[in-house]
């Protein structure tokens, strides 16, 4: 396990649970760096003042917020950090919700909570009680100068922490209008489509899916390294079926 990224204490009531926070996920996207195409030289990003047409040194850079066109308020890193509030190492959980009521769109990132050196009994108690109550704790956590709403729940033997999106960050799908339909889907179409859904029903098994694109990218890298010629593949486009009922019938017959 990599090193913990934050150490602190969960409090619920007067109980304090020392914890260590670990990232639960890691991106496996293949990363490239920018290079000059002709010889692979390193590319540098330089800050240029467009007025002077010259590079600006880092010490001559400040952060600004644009109040109105061309009118900037300059802020230091410390002033921006002050927005985080008290930089506390306390993660206060003050209410508990049924985790299954939370719409998936609110979940942002997941972390694992490890038990701190002291107070492992308190960690075990919180874990056992959340399990038994079938609830998740909600609290607020300041991480990287930023305060977030978090949900803490049990996952196997550990506690998992999810950072949550705020309601005003989510788009309401109903803000988008749907085109009117002349005729609603018929009872027969619904019946057939439901049968098709049932026919394709499966357990969610995330291990059944591999990132084939990641593997394809690595294969292209390998081919290029071996000096092979890389040819683009032809595109395939599906036909859009006009007759909904006929398409459903054919799909069911094929299933």
């Amino acid at each position: 396990m990599p090193r913990s990224i934050w150490n602190g204490t969960i409090t619920f009531g007067l109980v304090a649970v020392p914890i260590k926070v670990y990232s639960a996920t890691e991106s496996k996207t293949v990363h490239f760096r920018e290079v000059h195409a002709k010889d692979g030289s390193r590319i540098e990003h330089r800050r240029i003042c467009p007025k002077e047409g010259k590079a600006v040194e880092y010490k001559d850079i400040v952060k600004g917020f644009e109040l109105s066109k061309g009118k900037w308020v300059e802020l230091t890193d410390d002033e921006i950090a002050a927005a985080a509030g008290s930089q506390s190492k306390r993660l206060e959980v003050d209410h508990f919700v049924p985790a299954s009521d939370i719409d998936p769109d609110f979940f942002e990132r997941t972390y694992y909570l490890g038990a701190g050196a002291k107070g492992k009994d308190a960690y075990a108690l919180l874990h056992a009680a959340l399990d038994k109550a079938e609830r998740a704790g909600v609290g607020s956590w300041t991480f990287h100068n930023r305060e977030r709403t978090v949900v803490i729940r049990t996952l196997d033997d550990v506690l998992a922490l999810h950072t949550m999106r705020f309601a005003d960050e989510l788009v309401d799908p109903r803000d988008y209008d749907l085109p009117r339909v002349r005729k609603k889907p018929s009872a027969q179409e619904i019946k057939m489509a439901t049968a098709l859904v049932e026919g394709l029903s499966a357990e969610f098994d995330p291990t059944a899916y591999q990132d084939e694109y990641r593997e394809a990218v690595l294969a292209v890298v390998k081919a290029k390294a071996a000096g092979k010629n890389i040819e683009p593949p032809a595109d395939e486009e599906p036909e859009s079926g006009d007759d909904l009922l006929a398409s459903l019938e054919a799909s069911l017959a094929a299933a």
Binding site: E34, H36, D39, S41, R42, I43, E44, H45, R46, R47, I48, C49, P50, K51, E52, V56, D60, I61, V62, K63, G64, F65, E66, W72, E74, L75, I80, F166, D168, E169
Partner: peptide, 25 residues
Amino acid sequence: TNLHFRQLHAKDHTPVEIHRFCAEE
């Protein structure tokens, strides 16, 4: 919904631009 900051040239608050340079040439 985040507030965004720009990097400015300290002396006159001109927003700086990021340009790509070849480190060799």
